[in-house]
Amino acid sequence: MSDLLWWVFASLAIGGGLGMVTRKNPIASLLFLVLTFFSLAALYVLLGAHFIAAIQVIVYAGAIMVLFLFVIMLLNLGHDYRPDVRGGAWIVAGFATAGLTGWLLTRVLTTEGAVVAQGGELEIAAAVREWNAVGAIALPLFRDYLVPFELTSVLLLVAIIGAVLLAKRRV
């Protein structure tokens, strides 16, 4: 069952990615990307990362992509769009590079990453049993990674100020 679902959402993710890259209309690209993100959220659920799945949808699909959609519509790029896909050799080069990247990354990830450690699944399951899905992430986040966590808040503050400054016509 979950294997089947995995294949379904994986193909949706790849299809969404392909559509995002190939569609000429920015809105279409965006919707395909939302599809990919949604599929990724589903894959996260299948991989046992419920909390990540939820914030994937909330943050990416619900906030970031809405922002993109907003900008596209604000700049009216969706209606009278000009095709922006580069021609001929670039497409070949692009997808050849993509294939090469994928192949090399696959080699890296599968030969090095997967065999290093095992049993994380069980560890996570135990943590979720004890602390539930959110607590299992929250505890290490606020205990071991407190400083990076606080730093991200600084980063967000900086980003807010930067965005406001950039987007205002007159400061």
């Binding site: 890259v21 670039w90 993509a98």
Partner: peptide, 14 residues
């Protein structure tokens, strides 16, 4: 890896 490759292709092509 495949999705990453797609992203790379998009950056090169679009």
């Amino acid at each position: 890896a495949i999705l990453f490759g797609l992203g790379v292709a998009g950056v090169v092509v679009r």
